[in-house]
């Protein structure tokens, strides 16, 4: 069953230099319990999609399209209606665990507040729930750490608390925006294992937003690659890695340094990230694409068979 359906989402920001087209015509569906990855580099619009789903876009944003959650368009909802969905239905995990926690509040209050607000729980019930969820995210000695402040925890522990906060009302959809980018690899491995366990136990759908293809490969069944705010390719993770069908995906996979490979030269993607002022009229990747032909600079490719490229797969280098 479709839980979330994003249709032709367009996000633009008004700015002094004209309109920034951050997200252009992005569509995808998520089923219940599905793990989908949005992969892209900075400026690809991946985080803005998550913010749009949560109704947290900046004020200068203009949104078009539909975000259907359980058949309701989230973009039409009022603030109070959205507040009823937040945390209980959809929760967001931010990248930076320090700045998404309030430094003046104890962990117990921050976690408890969510249940009190969204479920009208009493203080003592909220404390109990906070304790349970802290155990669920494996914070050692949770009982004695309820009264601790965020600064008393390490980065990995803080991210666990942020995940606990997202889980406390048992949402059906978790949006994880670069949840491990700020963390060390050993801690990252712990956090991803934790998310995986929770996802399996609770059947929560997870939209993982990341730039790290390694994290995606180990976690998500399906992957969508974004570039310059447009969809480049969407496929089951296995086939995307086995047979990437878009020049950008191919370039990206080749540019990742792997520890096991001994060949000296990394194949970089030439050029710089795209300028997104003004409406796109051609493939945003064309200026950096090794396979680009004259057409590519004129035609805006649409998604067909999971890829947005006018060149047939067989002809790509």
């Amino acid at each position: 069953m479709t839980l979330l359906s994003v249709k032709n989402l367009k996000i633009r920001f008004r700015s002094g230099d004209g309109k920034i087209h951050a997200v252009n015509d992005v569509s995808f569906d998520m089923a219940q319990g599905q793990k989908l990855a949005l992969v892209g580099e900075s400026g690809s619009g991946k985080s803005q999609i998550a913010l749009a789903i949560m109704g947290l876009l900046a004020r200068n944003a203009e949104v078009e399209g539909e975000i259907l959650y359980d058949g309701r368009n989230l973009l039409d909802l009022s603030r109070s209606e959205l507040n009823r969905l937040r945390a209980k239905e959809i929760a967001l995990i931010f990248q930076d665990p320090m700045s998404s926690l309030n430094p003046y509040m104890t962990i117990e209050r921050q976690l408890g507040e969510v249940v009190e607000l969204h479920e009208g729980a009493s203080r003592s019930a909220a404390r109990k729930r906070a304790l349970d969820v802290m155990d669920a995210v494996k914070i050692p000695d949770a009982k004695n750490r309820l009264k601790a402040y965020p600064h008393e925890f390490s980065g990995g522990m803080r991210q666990r608390i942020v995940i606990a906060m997202a889980l406390i009302c048992k949402p059906r959809l978790i949006l994880a925006d670069e949840p491990t980018t700020a963390l060390d690899v050993t801690v990252q491995a712990q956090i991803m294992a934790l998310l995986d366990d929770i996802q399996r136990d609770m059947g929560t759908a997870v939209l993982l937003i990341t730039h790290d293809l390694g994290v995606v490969a180990g976690f998500c069944e399906d992957t969508m690659v974004l570039y310059g705010g447009r969809m480049m390719e969407a496929a089951p993770t296995l086939s995307l890695f086995d047979a990437p069908g878009h020049p950008y995906t191919r370039g990206l996979l080749r540019a990742v340094p792997r520890i096991t490979e001994d060949d000296a030269e990394l194949s970089a993607i030439p050029g710089s990230p795209p300028n997104q002022t003004g409406a796109p009229t051609a493939c945003p990747f064309a200026p950096r694409c090794v396979d680009a032909i004259a057409e590519c600079h004129r035609i805006l490719p649409t998604m067909q068979d999971g890829r947005a490229c006018i060149r047939p797969v067989e002809e790509l280098t």
């Binding site: 690899v185 491995a189 890695f241 520890i259």
Partner: peptide, 21 residues
């Protein structure tokens, strides 16, 4: 050994077994 095992491998066919410290 622990550090290397935790490095995510960009290949969905490789099942890494990170040593969780």
């Amino acid at each position: 050994q622990a550090l290397l095992s935790a490095v995510p491998v960009p290949d969905p066919r490789v099942r890494t077994q990170p040593q969780l410290l």
